[in-house]
Nucleic acid binder design. Structure first.
Lengths: 255, 255
DNA sequence: CGTCTGTTTGAGCGTTCTCAAAGGTAGTGG
DNA sequence: CCACTACCTTTGAGAACGCTCAAACAGACG
């Protein structure tokens, strides 16, 4: 491990603004206070520091308090790939439960903090709080769904589509956390984006330039503005959840 | 839904040979009998029949009793991709927990049967049996890990490597279930293999022919023999768990 | 025996990769 | 404050892997 000594627990789940995304979703306030007792420690990471490495024994899972992390896998021959980017409120380390040790490396993309959830204590508490148990299963299931959509992207989409879908997905996740959905900073390098999308860095750069030329986005370094969201959604081949024009509705068949 | 009326519960978890892979792993015999009470129904599927479709409300998860199923996702424009193949003892429907309805379609590749696990009743029981809860979390976590390794395959491996890795992975899963690890029938078509691996059917066919020419495999229709497992492992860029020659061990450094 | 579906093989093309070099930005130290 | 370095990003040119289109082939089934 590579991180600083644990923080003092200055703030609790019961007062955390991330309550609506994190583990305590759906819990009564008395239940949340029991989660408070579970999560006493925090880890502070600088850019580039790792939270855990593959092979480390699983003792805890983690929730992102602030900042951004990436998880990546590596192959025998040294090739490696970014598998996920993790925003505040998201849970990390779930891949360690199956075999008792983490399968991936988790690394901070910027200064970040994560809450430590002791896994065995968590399982005990989850048996006592049905809502907590249910929320944890939902988190695991959504993680699964997200990876499976990512598989769809890598398996059937072209580079251009993958990148558009990536930008929109990021936009949606940021929006859900109260950030602007059409203007934000990319916390990851072009290399990391390319790795995540299964394309080369040069292709990422070319596609971004092409998007900018087409007026879909504006990009300067890592600061990006999504100008034509509908155009991006169309490119990505996914429906625009915010689109309100009536032509997207298929008229009901007359009987 | 598309399936026949439920079967009579002729056999129980307590006597099922799949106990060592399925939900009851690690449970005492008295605990297993409580799982018996939970799983009373079975579904029998013919080739091509669907167990569930995306959008169907989640009421149950399923474990494969015999046969093989695929799960696939579809895109707006009609493109679709096979996300997973499911062998006996594996759990299906986990992607439905997050949103309360399934995200994928599950379709039988051959005559199959699956046990029905009522999800709400299961959560209740899992709170009472720590070993069951723990096993379920392990299953979810391993599912996640498997998808993430699949991502690695689609993101960084070439067609040849993907196919070799696929054959070996299948071989390992079959071996764990007591089948031959070097000779088996592919239950899926070339189209389905290609879709799963993110490559075209023609490429699958060409690569298989090339493997056969190189003496790595013998293939006739869907019956395949893995001749040179070490060669395949090397091609796939993954370590061979069965290899016993001493050169693969890195000698310990002298102190 | 003919039809249908699934598979194999071939030829040419295109998206993306590889290799290469230039351009920008940030950070460091004089 | 500016020069210098290091790293990241952009852009270009050519090559390659895998795709698309097309046709032949093989089993399965009625």
């Amino acid at each position: 491990m590579n991180y600083k000594p644990t923080d003092s627990p200055t703030s609790k789940c019961s007062v955390c603004v991330l309550g609506q995304f994190c583990l305590p979703v759906g819990l009564s306030s008395s239940d949340v206070s029991r989660v408070d007792n579970l999560i006493k420690e925090r880890v502070h990471l600088q850019k580039g520091e790792s939270l855990y490495r593959h092979g480390d024994p699983l003792s805890s899972v983690y929730s992102v308090r602030f900042g951004t992390l990436k998880t990546e896998y590596c192959l025998q021959d040294g090739r490696q790939q970014v598998i996920g980017f993790h925003l505040p409120g998201e849970i990390l380390g779930l891949d360690g439960i199956g075999e008792g040790h983490y399968q991936s490396d988790a690394i901070a993309l910027e200064e970040s903090a994560v809450c430590i959830i002791r896994y065995d204590a968590f399982e005990d508490l989850a048996r006592q709080l049905p809502a907590l148990q249910n929320q944890f299963h939902k988190i695991l299931s959504r993680e699964l769904t997200q990876d499976q959509r990512h598989l769809l992207s890598l398996g059937t989409m072209r580079a251009e589509e993958r990148l558009a879908a990536f930008l929109l997905s990021l936009s949606q996740r940021l929006a859900a956390r109260g950030y602007l959905n059409n203007e934000f900073d990319l916390r990851m390098s072009r290399v990391e984006i390319g790795s995540y999308l299964g394309i080369q860095i040069e292709t990422v750069s070319r596609m971004l330039s092409r998007f900018a030329e087409s007026g879909l986005i504006q990009i300067k370094q890592r600061h990006i503005k999504l100008i034509d969201m509908n155009g991006l959604y169309e490119l990505a081949g996914i429906p625009n959840p915010d689109r309100h024009d009536c032509h997207t509705e298929v008229p009901l068949k007359q009987v």
